[in-house]
Simulated scan of single mutants.
Amino acid sequence: MTPRSVPKMTTDDEAEAFLAQDLSNLDLTAFKPLTWEAEPKTARVNMRLPAPLMEAVRARAAERGIPYQRLIREAIERTVRR
């Protein structure tokens, strides 16, 4: 049986549909750990942003099917990892 690669998913619905099938021949080398999502969220951040930037953040998050706070968290995590 040839291993299948993981398709790109941009919404929760796509991920749920993907996980509902037989994944026994899935090539898991594409998966990367997401430490930011596994940690409890106990610290708060409060900041002011220009309205157009906030609108852009919300629009990009909507395109990916995720909450805008998660998108901001991902950006912070990426910056810190560099």
Rank of each mutant, 00 (worst) to 15 (best):
P33V: 00
I66G: 02
A30T: 08
F31S: 12
V57P: 00
L28D: 05
T29F: 04
M9Q: 08
T2V: 11
P67F: 08
R64P: 00
T29C: 04
E55F: 10
P67E: 09
L26Y: 04
F18Q: 03
V80M: 14
E16C: 09
M9S: 10
T79L: 15
K8E: 11
P50G: 09
A17H: 09
A75Y: 04
A20Q: 05
A43K: 08
A75N: 03
T2N: 14
P3L: 15
A17W: 06
R73A: 14
N25C: 12
T79S: 12
L53E: 07
K32P: 00
E77C: 08
L71G: 00
F31K: 11
T35Y: 11
M47F: 12
W36V: 04
E63P: 00
I72L: 15
A61D: 01
L53F: 07
E14C: 07
L71N: 00
A51T: 14
R70E: 12
L26I: 13
I76N: 01
V6F: 10
A17K: 09
L28T: 11
Y68W: 14
L26H: 01
S5W: 11
A62F: 03
T79E: 15
V80T: 13
D12S: 12
I72Q: 00
R73Q: 10
W36I: 02
Q21D: 11
E37W: 06
E63W: 09
L19C: 14
E14L: 06
I72R: 00
K41R: 15
K41S: 15
P67D: 07
V45C: 07
P7Y: 07
R64Y: 05
R44V: 11
A38S: 13
M9P: 03
R4D: 11
E77H: 06
L28I: 14
A59W: 04
K41Q: 15
R48V: 03
A61M: 03
T2C: 09
V80P: 02
K8N: 11
R60S: 12
